[in-house]
């Protein structure tokens, strides 16, 4: 990193030789700074996305993704996908899953961040431990929760029975009523630490004298939060919500190992459907068409979210 940046000034066009306006130079500089990002993403994502889009317009028994030209062009995949009544359900479940994860994860993350921003003994040990769920790889998370949510002898049932919340064991992953909750819980657990971390970092950046000034003005704890803390958290919070939302919307690692999209499609989100179409049913064209539809929907949601994010950030 040091190496990269200390050598960097040589790439600056030197002013005496090239006469360019400040704005022009700024623009070149801005884009050259963004180039590595675009290159990294473009080099590896552009081709797969192109294949996915191409694939979504191909008919026939697609078996060779390297030579898509041999399959006839068609809108059939889109026609099938869009007229399939199941699609609306998939979209709805994706939204339920995303909101169901992001809202509690944010609430837990915010609460913890506020707590961990205070001074108390042992904080240095508590803080890394509070982030621990983040360190558990998704494969291990889903295995651990399938073990704990076991409908017969899972410890979750035992604990809930012990405190009297349920009387009978609940087959969490087998019942359509509880399956969505059962896949949301591990996802929340895995994602809340990200909010905690981002918000702790943001809290650290609030100058302490702002609080002192507020206290001198006689502001209550709530008013301090409302007028000092929250304005500083809004932008990072919005950003973290968008990033997590995008991630969760297409999340697959928790749902598939736990329920495979069942029971009776109760947890079939767009991401699960895309996987099933391609890897269980071998209908690659339909899978890609759903993928493109997903991209459009998510893009639209993102644009809508974008407005509030922009407001939040500026």
């Amino acid at each position: 990193m040091t190496d990269v940046l200390t050598h960097a000034p040589t790439t600056q066009p030197s002013p005496p030789k090239r006469r360019r306006s400040r704005a022009q130079r700024d623009r070149i500089f801005a884009w050259s700074m963004l180039t590595p990002t675009i290159a990294a993403v473009g080099l590896l994502m552009a081709y797969p996305i192109y294949i996915a889009i191409n694939l979504s317009f191909r008919g026939g028994e697609i078996a060779d993704l390297q030579n898509l030209g041999q399959y006839p062009l068609t809108l059939g995949n889109y026609a099938d996908v869009i007229t399939d009544p199941q699609l609306l359900g998939d979209i709805w479940r994706s939204i339920v899953y995303t909101v169901g994860v992001v809202v509690p994860a944010f609430a837990i993350g915010l609460g913890l961040a506020l707590l961990l921003n205070k001074t108390f003994p042992g904080k240095r040990i508590v803080r890394p431990l509070a982030l621990l769920p983040w360190a558990v790889p998704g494969v291990a998370v889903s295995a651990a929760f399938s073990w704990m949510l076991d409908g017969s002898f899972g410890v979750v049932n035992y604990l809930l029975r012990s405190v009297g919340l349920i009387e009978q064991n609940v087959a969490w992953l087998a019942s359509s009523d509880t399956a969505m909750t059962a896949v949301i819980i591990p996802t929340v657990w895995k994602f809340y630490p990200f909010f905690t971390l981002v918000l702790v970092a943001a809290l650290q950046a609030i100058p302490g004298d702002l609080y002192e000034a507020a206290r001198l003005d006689g502001a209550s704890a709530w008013q301090q939060f409302r007028y000092v803390t929250w304005p500083a958290l809004r932008a990072p919070a919005a950003l973290a919500i968008v990033i997590t939302g995008v991630g969760v919307f297409r999340e697959f690692d928790f749902i598939f190992p736990l329920t495979g999209g069942g029971p009776d499609d109760a947890t079939t989100t767009l991401a699960v459907r895309i996987y099933n179409e391609a890897f269980e049913y071998f209908t690659f064209g339909a899978s890609a068409a759903i993928g493109v539809v997903t991209m459009v929907i998510a893009g639209a949601l993102l644009l809508m979210a974008g407005r509030s994010v922009r407001e939040g950030m500026n």
Binding site: T11, S32, T35, P36
Partner: peptide, 25 residues
């Protein structure tokens, strides 16, 4: 990274991708 960036700016990105993709066969 900077070296790579300069190359890319000169439009070699396309070629780089092509190399990675067309090394097939």
């Amino acid at each position: 990274m900077i070296a790579l960036r300069r190359k890319l700016r000169r439009g070699l990105a396309v070629a780089a991708a092509a190399v990675l993709l067309a090394a097939a066969g």
